[in-house]
């Protein structure tokens, strides 16, 4: 069954699964991984715009398409690392259809989850077969029973800029509120029936900040990350780093901040030595699975390369 609510509040009152672009949902439904009623958001107005937030920053409607978001002048100007991440995720045709809200709440790409014949905690099963099976592309920060890395790239932006999602009832959730700490293996986010994301609120960027994104994957394009990073560094007038964010994707069951790497950056200028140390620190709390230890040097390199990109950007 399908319903087509005309506003967000009535959408939130319905039972079923919200469908925005449908790029993930339809693939799962076609493989028999998802059943039940669809709440089609096509006719919900006003959720596909990007507008200034009340205290600076941007209010991004949840139904904004990834391509629109990635190429929006204000996003590119204020949040270049996030804009680059959005422009580099998936494929052009997916980005034209998939939405910001959908990207934040999509399901894991784990082959065990996606194969209808295999048991998985996220499908109600009693074990994670990947953990004892083939998991060489899975998490290397082991947070909970599910070994699959979180799939959302834009979620890294939530960590880097302390962004929040806004729900239809006005509630605001930060990354921890939306994703938890990775200990619950059953879900990829903590939203429950009736909680509909209507917006993605980005606080105003700092006066003097730089950001960048990089993804390491086996093939060059259109592949889920071995690791990806958004780094954001805020400088004071003397060029000293006052705030740093290193957000990692592809490595944990939730999007993750490499806090030790951030600490290694703050308090001095961005130098080669400093960024190398930050990279090394980024895996300080890593807890690789038997087959994912190889990812650690890749994470280190990815963080260092992304930070190094900041050096070549023009002074903000």
């Amino acid at each position: 069954m399908i319903t087509l609510p005309k506003d967000a509040l009535s959408a939130a009152s319905l039972t079923g699964s919200f469908r925005a672009g449908g790029t993930d949902l339809q693939a799962r439904r076609a493989r028999g991984l998802h059943h039940g009623d669809v709440i089609e958001l096509r006719d919900v107005p006003g959720l596909n715009t990007i507008s200034p937030g009340p205290t600076g920053g941007l209010k991004v409607g949840a139904l904004t398409r990834i391509a629109t978001f990635a190429h929006h002048a204000d996003v590119r100007k204020g949040y270049p690392g996030l804009a680059a991440a959005a422009a580099g995720l998936a494929t052009p045709a997916i980005r034209e259809v998939a939405t910001v809200g959908g990207n934040l709440t999509q399901e894991v790409r784990c082959a065990y989850y996606r194969n209808p014949n295999l048991v998985c905690l996220k499908k109600g099963g009693d074990a994670c077969l990947a953990r004892g099976g083939d998991h060489f592309l899975h998490s290397c920060f082991d947070q909970g029973a599910c070994a699959a890395p979180h799939p959302s790239t834009l979620a890294l932006g939530m960590l880097a800029w302390d962004a929040q999602v806004e729900l239809a009832d006005g509630a605001l959730l930060d990354a921890a509120g939306l994703y938890g700490d990775g200990t619950n293996p059953r879900t990829t986010h903590r939203l429950t029936q009736g909680q509909l994301i209507v917006g993605f609120n980005l606080p105003a960027p700092a006066a003097n900040e730089r950001s960048a994104w990089r993804r390491v994957s086996h093939r060059n394009n259109a592949e889920w990350p071995i690791v990806e990073a958004i780094v954001r560094v805020v400088f004071d007038a003397a060029g000293q780093i006052t705030l740093a964010r290193v957000a990692l994707g592809g490595v944990g069951n939730t999007p993750l901040r490499a806090v030790a790497a951030e600490e290694a950056l703050v308090g001095g200028p961005l130098t080669e030595a400093r960024l190398m140390a930050a990279g090394e620190a980024s895996v300080k709390t890593a807890s690789p699975l038997p087959m994912t230890r190889w990812k650690l040097p890749v994470v280190v390199t990815c963080v260092q390369d992304t930070l190094r990109d900041l050096l070549t950007l023009e002074t903000p």
Binding site: I2, G21, G22, T23, Q26, R42, A93, I94, V97
Partner: peptide
């Protein structure tokens, strides 16, 4: 192409074409 932008027709619900 949907409104001149490329889309994967296999994943795009026909409902969305309104």
């Amino acid at each position: 192409l949907v409104d001149k932008a490329p889309a994967c027709a296999c994943l795009l619900p026909a409902v969305a074409l309104e």
